[in-house]
Design a protein around this nucleic acid. Structure first.
Length: 423
RNA sequence: GCGGGCGUCGCCAAGUGGUUAAGGCAGCGGCUUGUGGCGCCGCUAUUCGGGGGUUCGAAUCCCCUCGCUCGCCCCA
């Protein structure tokens, strides 16, 4: 075995699993098209500063998970750890908002330098939607429904939508102060991680998975209590709309997402089948992001789905194997050119066909045709060549009589063969 | 960054100190020099992730290292 291997956490998508990716991707494209979203593709590599400023210096993503390096010109570059900051940058840079609010989707690889485990890789793929320049609760409800409906469309079951409102920046900073005061009183009872977090990002302690900490937090002040009337109204209206859409959800006041830019609505769609990486889809409102990056004041909201996690959850449900229609068997001097030419003609006519290269015995070539599951074998040997015909044989047919399963066609009238195969 | 588990052929594996490292799948060849699915026969690891050590003798024991995997943290 070679000692050249893919880097840790970078995985190959092999031919045997690519079909389900293509299926999910094509359903996504269809679904987003129908919702009137436009695709956007941004570079995988950006200036480090974009993420540092956009995502937040205090976040884990920026603090310890970025793939950062200097390019030959000495610029600090980073492989994108998520899509939102790049999309925001592109929207600003290209002045897209001059054409009104942007309803966008994107997909592609993201990079985070973490220890891989189930449902987590260093290079992974996200599918995301961003509504840039839209403030209404109605647009939020639609954005969430687009995610929910997509997951239903691909056949995902057993997922849960959790919802929270983080309020405005003012609501949150007020809450942050109160929470900090409360936490400091209980400092000695906190777990190690939470103790460290108390100054950096106390809100995230709410998210702690430590059971003792969670127990302690039952009496903690709730973000909910600090929401302004306006924030509270928004949140209730969103819930009302989701009810009308019959999209089930749970309000989780402890749902605090890890990236700094969220405000008001935050949500997650989770599955209990994913091991500890339960989130399939996460998103929220990021009203401050665009202005933080130098654009105008632009309310926005978005989400991202983890493709690997989604595909993991879908399991084998998407693996309808595509079998080649025709396998072209040929043997004998001078059959190479004719065989290749016939193959091309069938392909032009839209018939999937594979050519045997081996030159081994007909018996072997038939075995191969059978193994790959071809429906038809097309045979060109020296006899056929001299008579200018090809033989067609139906595979997977009853073994009783093979004579009835053979057909012949003049090479010059390959159209007959094409017509026959198409029926 | 910190824990647990694991590394024997392309894949799945048996083997837990004694001289030739089972078996299955896949691959290749043959039985069958031009007709598949079944069957039968043969071939395919001087080597057990790598490096040291112990021993007359190691895939099997010890040390180091690398990799994979699961979990913590965090996220999609």
């Amino acid at each position: 075995m070679t000692d050249l291997k893919s880097l840790r956490g970078m995985v190959d998508l092999l031919p045997s699993e690519i079909k389900r990716w293509q299926n999910v991707e094509s359903l996504a494209r269809q679904h987003f098209d129908r919702a009137g979203l436009k695709e956007i593709r941004t570079p995988i590599l950006e200036l480090t500063e974009l993420f540092a400023r956009g995502i937040g210096e205090g976040t884990d993503v920026v603090g310890k998970e970025m793939y950062t390096f200097s390019d030959r010109g000495g610029r600090s570059c980073t492989l994108r750890p998520e899509g939102t900051a790049s999309v925001a940058r592109s929207v600003i840079e290209n002045g897209l908002l001059n054409n009104g609010p942007q309803r966008l989707w994107y997909g592609g690889p993201m990079f985070r330098y973490e220890r891989p485990q189930a449902g987590r890789q260093r290079q992974f793929h996200q599918l995301g939607v961003e509504f840039v320049g839209l403030e209404s609760v109605l647009s939020e409800a639609e954005l969430i429904s687009i995610a929910w409906d997509f997951l239903k469309l691909v056949g995902l079951k057993g997922v849960k939508l959790e919802l929270n409102s983080l309020g405005t920046n003012e609501d949150r900073s007020c809450f942050r102060k109160q929470l900090k005061v409360w936490l400091e009183k209980k400092y000695e009872l906190l777990d190690k991680d939470s103790k460290q977090r108390i100054n950096v990002n106390p809100l995230r302690i709410l998210d702690s998975k430590n059971p003792n900490t969670q127990k302690l937090l039952e009496d903690a002040p709730s973000l909910n209590e600090f929401l302004s009337d306006k924030s509270r109204e928004r949140f209730f209206y969103l819930q009302e709309l989701l009810h009308q859409l019959s999209i089930p959800f749970e309000v989780n006041h402890k749902l605090v997402r890890g990236l700094d830019y969220y405000s008001h609505t935050a949500f997650e769609i989770t599955s209990d089948q994913l091991g500890s990486q339960a989130t399939v889809c996460g998103g929220g409102r990021y009203d401050g992001l665009i202005s933080d990056l130098g654009g105008g004041n632009t309310p926005s909201i978005g989400w991202a789905i983890g493709m690997e996690r989604l595909i993991l959850l879908l399991g084998d449900s998407f693996t309808n194997k595509d079998v080649p229609c025709v396998y072209l068997i040929h043997r004998g001097s001078n059959t190479d050119g004719v065989a290749l030419d016939v193959a091309r003609k069938l392909r032009f006519a839209g018939i999937p066909i594979e050519l045997d290269y081996s030159g081994s015995t007909f018996s072997k070539q038939f075995k191969r045709a059978d193994r790959i599951g071809a429906q038809w074998a097309l045979i060109i040997g020296e006899d056929e060549l001299s008579k200018e015909i090809v033989m067609l044989k139906k595979l997977h047919s009853s073994s009783s009589d093979s004579l009835t399963t053979q057909f012949s066609f003049n090479l010059n009238e390959i159209d007959n063969l094409i017509t026959f195969l198409k029926n």
